[in-house]
Nucleic acid binder design. Sequence first.
RNA 1: GCGGGCGUGGCGGAAUGGUAGACGCGGGGGUCUCAAACACCCCUUCCGCAAGGAGUGCCGGUUCGAGUCCGGCCGCCCGCACCA
Length: 882
Amino acid sequence: MRAPLMPTDDATRDEPLAEGARSDGLDVAAIEAKWRAAWDEARCFESRVEPGRPKYYVLEMFPYPSGRIHMGHVRNYAMGDVIARYKRARGFNVLHPMGWDAFGLPAENAAAERGIHPAAWTRDNIAAMQAQLKSMGLSLDWTREFATCEPEYYRHQQRLFLDMLAAGLVHRRASMVNWDPVDHTVLANEQVVDGKGWRSGAPVERRELLQWAFRISEMAEELLEAIDGLERWPDKVRAMQRNWIGRSAGASIRFELSAAAPDGAGEIEVYTTRPDTIFGASFIALSVDHPLIRSLEGGNPALAAFTAECRSAGTSEAAIEQGEKKGFATGLSVKHPFVPGLSLPVYAANFVLMEYGTGAIFGCPAHDQRDLDFARKHALPVLPVVLPEGADAASFAVGDEAYVGPGRLFRSDFLDGFEVETGKAEVIRRLEETGRGEGRVTYRLRDWGVSRQRYWGCPIPVVHCEECGAVPVPTSELPVTLPEDVTFDAPGNPLDRHPTWKHVPCPACGKPAVRETDTMDTFADSSWYFARFTAPDCAEPTDADAVDYWMNVDQYIGGVEHAILHLLYSRFWARAMKITGWLPAKAVEPFDALFTQGMVCHETYRAGGRWLAPEEIERGAGGAVTERATGAPVEVGPSVKMSKSKRNVVDPEAIIARYGADTARWFMLSDSPPDRDVEWTVSGVEGAYRFLRRIWRLTESAADTLPPAGAAPGALSDAAMELRRATHKAISEVTGDIESFSFNRAVARLYELANAISRAPSPEGDAGAGFALREALEAFARLAAPFVPHLSEEIWARLGCEGLLAETAWPEADATLLVRDRVVLPVQVNGKRRGEIEVSVDAPKDEIEALALADGAVLRALAGAVPKRIVVVPGRIVNVVV
RNA sequence: GCGGGCGUGGCGGAAUGGUAGACGCGGGGGUCUCAAACACCCCUUCCGCAAGGAGUGCCGGUUCGAGUCCGGCCGCCCGCACCA
């Protein structure tokens, strides 16, 4: 199907394109290197505080140094670069930095597997990825580059930690964790698969450990309310953050135990969002981790067996989803707060979470599905107390489905007749009156546990002393640096088993003590890097003048996978840094605008159950796809996110080597709206490459015949005017499209401008045509510069223009060229398009009506009918209504 | 279950309530060439020779006019979730 010289699906091979493809004299690799050197030389992209000059801070989420950039990076950074170059051309003092989110587990895994030190592995990766990013021609201020794994960065993070500790924003508390007994480490929920550690395969234990935690839950309400002000964030992300914080209003109710529990407890406090259904309560259920249950376990082996079983069950979603509602009757009972003589049995239940509310609920089976399932299983009463509109009070019953809708309360004593919402208020009022409970707001958001039993993270700057407790390391002794001499041949935390590092005198009393050997969650590193970029060499965490000038980030761009944790943590840190004096009040919401880009997808290929990479397949005549090496038929699967496991990845380095960075950038931005997924295709890349060469040929063929830049000669031909109008339309539209993040539309507008240039009259012997063509080509270069900066510079230079395009102002559209003096108006009859008329743009209505009614096609459609009304929308449309 | 989003040609996608399908990909035809490649030109929603008709997931509604707004369905994608 394809001729041999056409690059096909093996486009990821490194060979540059055949000579024939470059017969136009465009040596992509050479010009790209040349212009990058020119920008470096001119230091175009370095920025500094310039009081009084408007600034623009554009930031893309910084990468983890995995070793190679992937297409997701290309997309992310191409978008950010469009914004940065555009804003710079608009006269802003642009801050566009890059750095490395360099702590994390993969470095330790590499160390364990290959015997490389995590620091060496990370630094090598940074060097490799930095070279790759530089090859993209991004307008980054590399003088601000830093890696979070270097003491020059994390010393300040330790300082911030200590300030937060002093301000009460960090505390040490016991918390339940997933503990891998083989690897001797805490696992995140995502690292627990089917109840087993993802690496060790060992059954995970739930353990209580002392862990450092940021008190983010104290800020739940503020973090929630401030979401309303994030007007330039995607609704989706705002909704996700709201859900994550998970505010719910309800009541806590204290139920008096009929007989005191073994631990002396006299009551059980439950949390509910449906206090109005209190008269439908038929049982109490406690989490198996509830202190009362724990106190009962000792004297009740059957209960202990039950709780042990529940705790060993996986905490994964799937396990919970399939798990049935299990309960164990404790034999205890409580008194109903409003019904004298009524007692409710107390269960331990697997579906009650200790982490939410009070770890105890009252069950109202008629109006909660889980409670109903539980009640049916344990033969507990189901008492409807909410009567749906129109239902009969005497016969209304609940079967297998709980009634959770609105209605009026009944069989509820003093609540009878109340609506659900007013009933809630009334019962809360009564609870508060009798001292049996009160209204209470609960959040799903929990404190952020940051202790990690890892080596490759920021050391927590605390020393544990038997006498003094947890003692902060004095700021004068920062940084607490990671020891270099560590081994990864044994499970557990190398810091913990290091022979000397952790043994230090107590900073307070001087007696022998031990360092905290846990390191911080790497999310901490990325929670304030945006502030550090404003003054990366400052001796303190931030510089007041720099953060005052540069903050906030005007435009933040990254993947939606960070919609919750990273962004929420950053919002928390910004507030904490304001409290501790490291950020101004205006920066508590550090990201003014957020854009979340879609993923990069590619078709998938399988042969005989094996995944094949794109370069391993071949397309034959008739579209048949086969494996290149074996000729085996290949099954082509749907386009999904590029991933190593499905092998549907295309390496940006290979693409850049073959086509150049401009082609990669252009295609990445051309096809799909930036917030949607984009499918990477060879034909699309080919198309992008063809187009860039075409515009170069247009430049090349015209350049020597163009008049020098200057004022427009007196009269222009119609064709020249047509080109001028196309040029200024493109300027106007591309500008709007970049402002609205519609890069795919901007690209389409540039194709249109190129098409107009193709149709342009010859400049030879026609000064007006020459003027229009020069204007069009210069405009193309300037408008395309944010997308394809190297080629644009080359065109700019070829046209003999002064200076670097990277330092040239954005073009302005001439408004007089955007309006035409004559327009074609479609004419509808009853809303159906029947004909069109050409009128002068300011033609009076009656003239337009007369012309419309005289149009042949319109007359035919009217078929003699008399118009009842004629709607004329000036410059738009005419509609004849009969 | 809750929340968010999306349904438009063969494909990616355009379209302030105003000519649906811009622009690109793919496809077809042609020019150039000994022949290719490269490039350039024309065509390309569907039905129809044409005139014309139909058409933006489905059903209704508002409007002179609906892909767009409203109501109700259907389907797909993403996030969260024994959250009391």
